[in-house]
Amino acid sequence: MLGSSDLEKGVVMSSLLSPATVPSLIGGKPTAPTDIPLRSGDLLSILETSDLANSTPTTLVTLVGPPDAGKSTLLATLYDCFRQNRFTALTFSGSRTLVAFEQLCHLSRIASGLQDPDTQRTKFSDEELFYHLTVNHFKEPASPRSLFVIDVAGEGFEGLRKSYENCLAITSLKRTEFLTLLIDGDKLRVPKDRYAAIEDAINLLKCVWDSQAVKPSCKLQVLVTKVDKLQDEASKAVIAEMKAVIIRRLETRFPNRAFLDVAARPKNGGGIRTAHGLEALLETWLVTASGPQIAIPTPSFVPGERESEAFLNRHFNTISR
């Protein structure tokens, strides 16, 4: 049996070739009591982000949108672009949630046995869970940035436009730097669905802002998804009208706002390539985010303070209200 003390003393290796075989070094399940557990590679809880938030500048993004708007597909495509190094200015530098990303992408791969790409929908969860990527930008090669993205399930979207309480319950919203709202391009194409989609979006933004669930400096991004289906002049006019309505109806809410068009997995070509608009979106998350944060010690909690909120206060409070 190979022992650590033996190795240190060079006992096991003292014969020039150890005739003994080394027993299975990692072993299968179930885990032996002495085995050293490793992180799961799954989505991160708020507390699990702590060491990363300490070591690199971070950006926290909250993705919201109705069911089937394309949030998970957007995230899966972003990840696959990094996996295939498809971006021109951004490169993959690591991730603590590779298992979660791979699960997310499974239905879009040949290995799934499907014929058309699909995406596993975000499951509704009471816990706030984050995808993680560390990304380098060619303009700042020595400055990797950790990106944490929370994908709020469609059910969560419904709740956010209905009550302040629901908005305030998502504690990470308070520190999110980018609130990225997806509007389903499919819905904009259909007159009977179009106005409901726009109204739902406006009501959500009003509710989130007026409840003070986000800080005033939070940047709003309104993403029209599936724009490969909205390339005719009539559709472009619908999008322009939608933007004008949202700007007018938000009034002074979300002074930092931008509109972007994306198509993560365009179906019919028409000059729109896979991941259309995604690099521009990422660049806003990474380059226009606030500057590097000062390293912060491991969180300690004030008695009575919610753990997650205390953590967020310390790690993502780059701009306070």
Partner: peptide, 19 residues
């Protein structure tokens, strides 16, 4: 197999850590 289990099983033995 040992190396592959790092990814799939997410734990290793103290002996492997020592190596």
């Amino acid at each position: 197999e040992t190396f592959g289990e790092i990814w799939s099983h997410r734990h290793w033995t103290p002996e492997f850590q020592t190596l």
